[in-house]
Structures are given as structure tokens and as C-alpha cells.
Write a protein that binds this DNA or RNA. Structure first.
Lengths: 240, 240
DNA sequence: CGTTCTCTTGAGATCCCTCAACACCTGTGG
DNA sequence: CCACAGGTGTTGAGGGATCTCAAGAGAACG
């Protein structure tokens, strides 16, 4: 289930000021990492478990990985979905602080931690790239905090769909239609809701004319504008 | 209201592998930064606003800073409290992605972004220290996601109090009693609740014998063990 | 063409929110 | 010294969004 690859990500990030100066180019990691390995991961298979020593970091090539935490009684919170192009597994400790599970059939490129360490020390721009990746992850996690803490179920779902739509709009692809690579149960655990509430709110978004479900896994956005307004709570009449 | 200081944080972090090898020392930033300035900030005063260009990063010396996001209708989510010793203001963009407000009278050391950039490029261990700080911030934000998404009000408050107690236990201080440097309203916006619910659950924790309120701002923990169990949902009988 | 998994829909229960009143504290001015 | 005002915290009553429990509808697969 493994095939070797000679390079990690093609473009190397240059050495440049991190904070205040200069343009911030899209992040891409290091130069050639001869030890990286592409690995096929079946749906439901785990990449790592909480508490395990962090031996690799991963670049998602296809599919989705869910990083999640559990409470003792089984309640689950998915902290992040990692889509193709995303990096996961960078931790502040030597062991992993959450579980990582493939939510669909997935291919990841796994890079040994030792290789990362070498690059950090040898290639000056590499550490900056890692910092930028981590800071971006932090920013989107904070965005998710706002969603979990202060948005209604309908707003949460609209926000989630909007984010996926935008991510799909990157190349020349239409942002109007896309696949949801994860199950309703996973969406629920990401949004801090139950499956039933997620399903009910899909229906509400359909009824409001924002989206259609081509299939239960494929979404067609009919009114991107209204979806965006809904995501930010703009359709509710709240005075404050 | 400003007094100059000659150094930022005394200890310099050394150049060492980031990921898998070696011990991970407690983080401390850079060597002498001659341009850093200590600044007194009144309660309710803002350090920066969302969208502003990021000109400085800040080290909290005393008090608390709240980093928060707003929805158009005024709903607020505090993403993080920054206590003495914490760094805030590291962003993945050139502008700030959230507001930062002093929640009590506060003193911060502000370091110009230009100085940070110089250190990143000149001192090899510095970028690693920033990376570790950001990764730690990400880890605690994910912990907060679990709280917001999956915990009950009582569990959220217990988790919050437990975290503060642990933070205060660091030197030789007792973790049993401490001040809450922020208002109920801020705690509510941090936990995704209303002030009333926060207040009611303070009462519930009191009634359960876990804590006492010396004053409304000062907490005495009587049963740390039970508090911890409550924080992780262990006192509710849930089978799953 | 069952079996299983997933998704949707319904009905009732529950936790938290909303609205409201009151208690407490502090500072101010009479 | 007291009256008052404003900010803060607590408590109560009722309502509503989401959860729980339950059943049925679709889709995937051997």
C-alpha cells in the first residue's frame, strides 16, 4: 500500500520576513525529501491516535482526514478536516494531542519527523513555512470557535458549506457544486450538533432556496449570496 | 504611560530539533530587543482591532487580554485569554484577524514586528520558539473547541476554572485559591454561554461543594478532584 | 433481494436563553 | 452620613433551539 516518491512539495519557500514586510506567498513545503512515502488509507482507518509519539507529519493528497478529540463518555469533537493540500500532525508536544482518522478513502504523503527536523535546521525558509501553516491552522480554528460558541445550527451549517465551496473555487472549478467527502455524523461532530439537527438544517437550507442536494453527498449551491448572509447571522433580525 | 526596557525575555531558546528529538524546553523568546516598550493598558482599552495592520506582538506582564471575534449582530466569542507570560498577536496575515482588549488593568511589553522579523532571520532558534508558541496556542484552542462543541455549561465552567487553577499552581503558589481577573460577561463569551448561565453554574459548583466564592472575583477550590471529574463529564451517567 | 449503513422526519424532553427583578458594591454629590 | 446612580452579579419564570428516542426512507453491496 505504499509507493515511494522522490520529492515532497515542489516549490521551496524563500527566506523572507515573517511579520510585517513583504508579500506572503502561498505556503509550500521544503524541497526534496527522499524519505517521504505515499500511503493509501481506507475510510475509518486511523493515521494516529492521541498520545502516540509523533513520528511523521502528513500531507493530504486526496480524501479527508478528521482530527478529533474524545471525552471519556464517548462524546466526540472533530477539530479540523484536512483536505488535499493540507498538512496535519504538527504538534507542540512529542506525542499527538488528538486522533486522526480518514473519513473517506484517502492518500497521504507521510514525512518522517526526522526529515522535518533536518529541514528546519538546514533550510532557513522551512521553519517559516511551518510557522505560517500553523498560524493559518490557528486562524481557522478560531473561526470555528466563533461558529461553535455563538452561531445557531443553521448558521453553523451555512458557514461550513460556504468554506467548502470557497475551497473548491480555487483553480478554475465552479464553486457552485461540490462533494461532501464526509458523512453527516462527521459534520455533526465538527459543528457540535447531532446528526438529526444537521439533517434538519440541510432541509432548511434547501427550503430557503440556498442549496440543492444532487445526492446526499453532493451539494449544489443556488444562492451563494444568501448562503453567505446566513453564515454570518445576517438573516435573523437581531437588534443589539 | 510608557517606559523603555532593554531586554525582552532573558533566556534565548537554543537551536534544536523541533519535532521528534530531544527534550522540549519551556518556551522563552529571543535575546535582547532594544526597541520593546512596556505599555500600561486600562481595562476595556483595545490593544488592536480586527483588520488593523499588525505592527507589534505583545507579551503580557500583568492583567488579562481577551482576543475576540464578533458577528455583525454583536454576538461575541472570546477566542483566548492571555495571562502574564503569554504572547499574543502572531498572525498568518499582515493584519489582525481578531480584536484584542484588556479585560482588566494590564501591562504588556510590545515588540515591533520589524524587530521580530530581524530575529527570525538572524537568530536560528527564534523562529522555532515562535513555532512552538503558535503550536501551543493551537493545541489549547482545540481543547476549547471540545469544550464549546461538546460540553455542558457546568462542564465548561469546571474546565475553565480548572485551567486557571493549574496555571496558578506553577511556582510554589497554591492552586486552591485564585482571582478571576475578568468579569462574568467575559467568561460567558469565552464559554459560549450567557452571563446568567455562568452565574447559575457558579452556584451549582458551589452547591456541589467543589468551590467557594471568597468574593465574586476570588475562587477557593475545595475539591480539585471532583472539579476535574466534572470538567471531563465524569459525573454525569452517560453510557455510549 | 435481503442486510446494513446512512439519511431524513417526527414527537417529546431538556438544557440553555430571554426577559425581568433584585441584591451588592463603589463612587459621587448633597 | 445618606441618597442615588451605574455597573456587576444572582435568582426566578417562561420559552425556544437543540437533543433524545423512535421510525421510516434511500442507497450500497453481496
Amino acid at each position: 500500500m505504499q509507493c515511494h516518491s522522490s520529492s515532497f512539495v515542489s516549490a521551496a519557500s524563500s527566506v523572507s520576513p515573517w511579520l510585517n514586510t513583504g508579500v506572503r506567498p502561498p505556503v509550500s513545503l521544503g524541497s526534496s525529501i527522499s524519505t517521504s512515502v505515499d500511503r493509501h488509507v481506507a475510510a475509518q482507518e486511523h493515521l494516529y491516535l492521541e498520545g502516540e509519539i509523533q513520528s511523521h507529519i502528513f500531507l493530504v493528497l486526496s480524501g479527508v482526514i478528521g482530527s478529533y478529540k474524545l471525552l471519556p463518555d464517548g462524546r466526540r469533537q472533530i477539530c479540523a478536516f484536512s483536505y488535499p493540500g493540507d498538512i496535519l500532525g504538527i504538534e507542540c508536544e512529542q506525542w499527538h494531542l488528538n486522533h486522526a482518522e480518514a473519513l473517506s478513502e484517502t492518500v497521504v504523503r507521510s514525512i518522517p519527523a526526522t526529515a522535518i527536523d533536518k529541514l528546519i535546521m538546514s533550510e532557513p525558509g522551512f521553519g517559516q513555512a511551518l510557522l505560517r501553516i500553523t498560524a493559518m491552522e490557528l486562524a481557522s480554528t478560531r473561526e470555528q470557535l466563533l461558529s461553535l460558541g455563538r452561531k445557531t445550527a443553521k448558521e453553523k451549517l451555512a458557514t461550513f458549506l460556504l468554506n467548502i465551496a470557497r475551497r473548491h473555487a480555487l483553480p478554475g472549478m465552479s464553486e457552485a457544486q461540490f462533494d461532501l467527502p464526509m458523512k453527516r455524523y462527521d459534520i455533526a461532530d465538527y459543528l457540535g450538533l447531532t446528526v438529526e439537527t444537521v439533517s434538519r438544517n440541510f432541509t432548511r437550507l434547501k427550503t430557503s432556496g440556498m442549496i440543492r442536494l444532487v445526492s446526499s453527498q453532493r451539494v449544489q449551491v443556488d444562492d451563494m449570496n444568501l448562503l453567505e448572509i446566513t453564515a454570518n447571522g445576517g438573516d435573523s433580525i437581531r437588534l443589539h
